[in-house]
Design a protein around this nucleic acid. Structure first.
Ligand SMILES: [Zn+2]
Ligand SMILES: [Zn+2]
Ligand SMILES: [Zn+2]
Ligand SMILES: [Zn+2]
Lengths: 155, 155
DNA sequence: TCACTAACTGAAAACGTTTTTCAATTAGCA
DNA sequence: TGCTAATTGAAAAACGTTTTCAGTTAGTGA
């Protein structure tokens, strides 16, 4: 189930955050995207809808939404954070193409047993886990294969 | 099995990298640490052994070692990278205390089956995965519990 | 409806990490 | 030993993110 901008505005108010035009625009950008976006991408899209939005506000809004558990944060290896509105309550994980950055979400990781075992062995109280698979998507596999073939021919 | 500084120097030479005093010092720092260290920590320790080492060289050496798969990179949520010399060929994963930063390594994640399933379902060619558990270590659990008790008493 | 106030705003500066640039130095090899 | 491509550190640039601060405003309640 996908939340609307209005519904999210209500949630913000419920938690005593003011619903300013700027916040509404940032939320709107997130609601209408199916891809994980970096803060600066969100900033650019937000400016197209409403020129008076600052990058700072994007960061601050992301902080709030993240604190409320409404968005998922993606941690790619090249030190870029991306965000996507959550659709379900289930925690989900990512399969990321290291070539083109394409992201596929999946939910069932089956790590419950491992989590329990580690908790017992180490005494840790485990709160969450981060799981990402990295590799090449279909498309990039073909491209890479082609390039390697060409390089071989050239040599 | 743990590699020595000399053995690592050989590996570098095998891959056509020159073994300079600076690189040797950086490698030495890594070899003699049991904890994941950030580039700037490595830099400080390296300077104690050999004042003429620059932070840039630390970054460059880490890049090389990483490319050769000799060190493991730790990606904490607060955007700090840390590095540790690898001891085995097995990929290993991390259990991180979100309070004090303590890291425990573990090896068996049992994600092979999931990896195979995802690969089939999505057509991805999966190269690696990143798995981190986050939570509170024994010590920090006690501290947090105490603090919460005190706060309750104060109110 | 209006006035009040705490919350919010953007610009600019500060921040910490990482990368690039470049002239000087040096490891490895013949 | 002398050559050369690789490597070096200082400095500057680049980058994503946070802080600061004076001005603005959403929401509240009279
Ligand atoms: Zn996601
Ligand atoms: Zn791809
Ligand atoms: Zn490790
Ligand atoms: Zn701890």
């Amino acid at each position: 189930m996908r939340l609307t901008t209005d519904k999210l505005a209500d949630i913000l108010r419920e938690h005593n955050y003011k619903v300013t035009p700027q916040r509404r625009v940032v939320v709107d950008v997130l609601v209408h995207s199916n891809e994980h976006m970096t803060p600066s991408t969100i900033y650019e899209k937000a400016r197209q809808k409403h020129p008076r939005v600052g990058l700072v506000t994007v960061y601050r809004t992301l902080d709030i939404l993240s604190g409320l558990g409404l968005i998922c944060e993606l941690h790619t290896l090249d030190n870029n954070h991306s965000y996507l509105m959550r659709e379900t309550d289930k925690p989900h994980h990512h399969l990321i193409c290291s070539e083109c950055g394409k992201v596929i979400d999946f939910t069932d990781c089956g790590l419950g047993a491992l989590e329990k075992r580690l908790s017992l062995e180490t005494g840790f109280e485990i709160e969450e886990h981060l799981l990402e698979f990295h590799g090449l998507c279909c498309h990039c596999q073909t491209i890479t294969a082609k390039r390697e073939k060409n390089e071989k021919t050239a040599t």
